[in-house]
Design a protein around this nucleic acid. Sequence first.
DNA 1: TATTGTTATACTCTATAACTATA
DNA 2: TATAGTTATAGAGTATAACAATA
Lengths: 151, 151
Amino acid sequence: MDDIVQQLNDYRPSFGPLEKTVSYGVKRAWLRVQRDLEAALAPEGFTPPLLAALSIAVANPGIAPARLAETMGHGRSRAAPLLDRLEADGLVTRAEGGDRRSLSLIPTAAGREKLARLERLLADHETRVTAPLSPDEARLLAALLERVSRG
Amino acid sequence: MDDIVQQLNDYRPSFGPLEKTVSYGVKRAWLRVQRDLEAALAPEGFTPPLLAALSIAVANPGIAPARLAETMGHGRSRAAPLLDRLEADGLVTRAEGGDRRSLSLIPTAAGREKLARLERLLADHETRVTAPLSPDEARLLAALLERVSRG
DNA sequence: TATTGTTATACTCTATAACTATA
DNA sequence: TATAGTTATAGAGTATAACAATA
């Protein structure tokens, strides 16, 4: 009797043709990652896109907004609102670039310190997300995902 | 000289602390998957969430809306607008369930035929997304992603 | 008291197009 | 003619809270 109840509780609806696809697997994993990271950054008043923008700005001092957006996988117009926020928080400044059309993004000391704090939250997040995997499996997963992203 | 130009062209901005994380890898892969699938389904007037809902409804006849939403990884309220659309298109019907609180979703013949057509687009999409991988690598990636999703 | 389906609401993410300035 | 930054706008996805009906 108990095993019948167990069997019923174990029942999981099928995903149909989506079952075992990389496509839907990526989507489901993204849902989990997205929610965990959002919750992890909330105490710092940050969001995942803001973290990505700050990370890239700090790692590539002098980068132009269009290049930053491109690195994130987006069009130019995605950069403006993110940079508005980072600049308002005093984490990044928009300086004039060599070409007067383009800007040069300079991380401030506060920006580097903020990122250092966020890196600790990020490391904990990564640990939670990869908890079901061995370290080797996690590295393998990251490598496979990168190849898919590059296409 | 040519190799210096090549070196410059090869330059890619760094992701900083996000580099090589599973977390950001999932996000980047999701961006690619999402865009490709959206474009693939557009000619059929469908979106990725509609495909997921129809797939689950067809694969689990009689499933309740709350269970469908849960399978997709969402709360109850996410089901209603998706089912509104599927029902308006004549692909699924909302029948009374055994419990008068809950509904029983029944796929129509048109729903099964629509899904069969979408499955061909989905297969092509999956082929494009996994193009950089061997078949074994693709299966491995799907399995690793599933373990991450289940947590 | 808990569960289901629904509605209302708001917020984030993202894309497109258009405008200005510069090259 | 092309590139950069910006703004406006719209749409899709998602979450929360609240409601009525049923258990």
